[in-house]
């Protein structure tokens, strides 16, 4: 339902950030975008969000072409980017201006409850910890019930424990409406914990290197042998993406029966 077709992006300074990226995401699918630094993950997300325009190629949601920020597509940035002059509750309700007051308040309260921040509504963003702020940022994007949710390394600034707990929070939130989730991460464990598919990218110019299915049931046991194996496969692909010759562009399917 989210389709990226031969997406290219060359920045005005000549950097070829993306070269003919083609991806297809099913409704409700969680896809992790993994890759070394500078391989165009953020660029790709910004193109899908409509904040930036592709040099060539198209992004479509349910067949509708994206050329500017679209109501069906929500984005969560690497930093919480909460508006410091709005309370936590007002931040969460930022995209709900069109709703009547009562319903807005109800959605905000429900969201706060779900991420374990009940009662934090009247606080200012500066009174939150990093993890709490990021949780608020996540529900701010989710309360508008987008069909597609984009996340750019949303947990990268957090410690491992907080990260794991936020990943669980994210999955719980995702369960409610099952948006299509495109998640950029450089954390292989995160990809294995959340994704149905891990897309490994290769730098200079950025393109898809491998597309790995993650055939694990949820909830996932991070200590299980299967989980460790998934991590190993993604890591191997990541290593390959960084050492592979820059010239040949190929998309690997998931090796069947590798687990």
């Amino acid at each position: 339902m989210l389709t990226l077709e031969a997406l290219c992006k060359t920045y005005p300074n000549g950097t070829e950030a993306l070269q003919r990226v083609t991806l297809d995401l099913q409704a409700g699918e969680i896809v992790a975008l993994v890759g070394g630094s500078g391989c165009g993950k953020t660029t790709l997300l910004r193109l899908v969000s409509g904040l930036e325009h592709p040099s060539m190629g198209t992004v479509g949601v349910d067949g509708e072409k994206i050329s500017a920020p679209h109501p069906a597509v929500g984005i969560i940035f690497q930093e919480p980017r909460l508006l410091p002059w709005l309370s936590v509750a007002e931040n969460i309700g930022f995209g709900l201006d069109h709703l009547p007051k009562g319903e807005r308040a109800a959605r905000v309260d429900e969201a706060l409850l779900k991420v374990g921040l009940a009662g934090y509504g009247p606080r200012w963003p500066r009174e939150l910890s990093g993890g709490q702020a990021q949780r608020v940022a996540i529900v701010r994007a989710l309360v508008t019930r987008p069909k597609v949710l984009l996340m750019d390394e949303p947990f990268s600034a957090l410690d491992a424990l907080t990260r794991a707990s936020l990943q669980d929070h994210l999955l719980a939130l995702w369960e409610a409406h099952r948006p299509t989730l495109l998640l950029v991460t450089h954390d292989v464990e995160e990809a294995a914990a959340l994704a149905d598919r891990a897309v490994v990218m290769q730098p200079r110019p950025g393109r898809v290197f491998a597309d790995i299915a993650v055939p694990l049931q949820r909830p996932r046991d991070r200590l299980s042998a299967d989980f460790v194996e998934v991590k190993r496969v993604i890591l191997a692909a990541l290593d390959g993406s960084l050492s592979a010759p820059a010239a040949d562009v190929k998309t690997q399917g998931a090796p069947s029966g590798w687990w």
Partner: peptide
């Protein structure tokens, strides 16, 4: 600019952007 981008991501019109982001900032 990162905060302005939040306004854009939520598809604020120019006037809404001025009122809800620019003015308080």
């Amino acid at each position: 600019r990162k905060i302005v981008e939040v306004g854009r991501a939520f598809r604020l019109s120019r006037t809404a952007l001025a009122r809800r982001i620019l003015l308080p900032a």
